[in-house]
Design a protein around this nucleic acid. Structure first.
Lengths: 126, 126
DNA sequence: ACTGGACCTCACACCCATGTCAGGTGAGAA
DNA sequence: TTCTCACCTGACATGGGTGTGAGGTCCAGT
């Protein structure tokens, strides 16, 4: 099992472009084996990792930050995890505040929608 | 009352740079009166608007989108509100999904932190 | 009158994930 | 074999909000 897949399939399964997958590797976020001819080969299990990376990006972490955090789950070396611990908490807190902010903004968007609806009703065609 | 303030003070009160305030105006998000010599003058009440704009930005709306939505609370013209209604709901939904995503990611970050803590305990100095 | 600070416009730089193009190699199907 | 398609590297483009600097005007305090 644990099929070996090529970059095109990894892209298809994750919805992430081939270009981005190469970029992730360049940034040290993703590793690949190479076929004799130099083509990238991935374990099926990397799908999950790519999806996680993608979510971390969309949570506003930079590739630099992610590369600092992710290794400590794959290969938890003493020192790395030490440095990363604070970083993780810091990012978690930032994310927390950001979520609060977004929820507030969503509420304001709801208010706008409500105001708009009220206005439309008031000026309804007679 | 309703004091008139200058751009520096608006920046200080909102935490948004002077540069950005000028940019908001350029994008049609913010209006200002001009003093005889051409300096921008704002009503104190614009502070709120700037803060809202700022939150909408950080919620991932583009200035283009914001300019489509915001007028319909200030000057709710029939046609504008008609076009904007769908737009607002669409952005609200997008934001909703994004928040869900972030909450999930926060959970994963928590998992990483927990795993790291467990690992550190396990390898504690003897 | 003079000085310093706040303001003006214009324009270019930056970040950073992603798109895109060029020019080339590898590999399976007809 | 030859066709086609996926893959490779390298490099330049893009978007959008923000930083920054040049060169100039305005205005309050001394």
């Amino acid at each position: 099992m644990t099929a070996i897949i090529r970059i095109g399939e990894l892209a298809a399964r994750t919805g992430v472009s081939v270009r981005s997958l190469r970029y992730y590797e360049e940034q040290g976020l993703l590793t690949s084996l190479r076929s004799p001819s130099g083509q990238r080969r991935y374990a099926e299990s990397q799908v999950e990792r790519v999806l996680l990376i993608q979510r971390l990006f969309s949570a506003g972490l930079s590739s630099r930050t992610i590369v600092d955090l992710l290794p400590c789950v794959e290969s938890p070396g003493e020192e790395t995890s030490d440095a990363a611990a604070g970083r993780m908490r810091q990012e978690r807190d930032r994310l927390d505040r950001h979520i609060e902010d977004l929820i507030r903004t969503r509420g304001e968007l709801d208010d706008l929608i409500a105001a708009n609806r009220a206005h439309r009703r008031e000026h309804a065609r007679v």
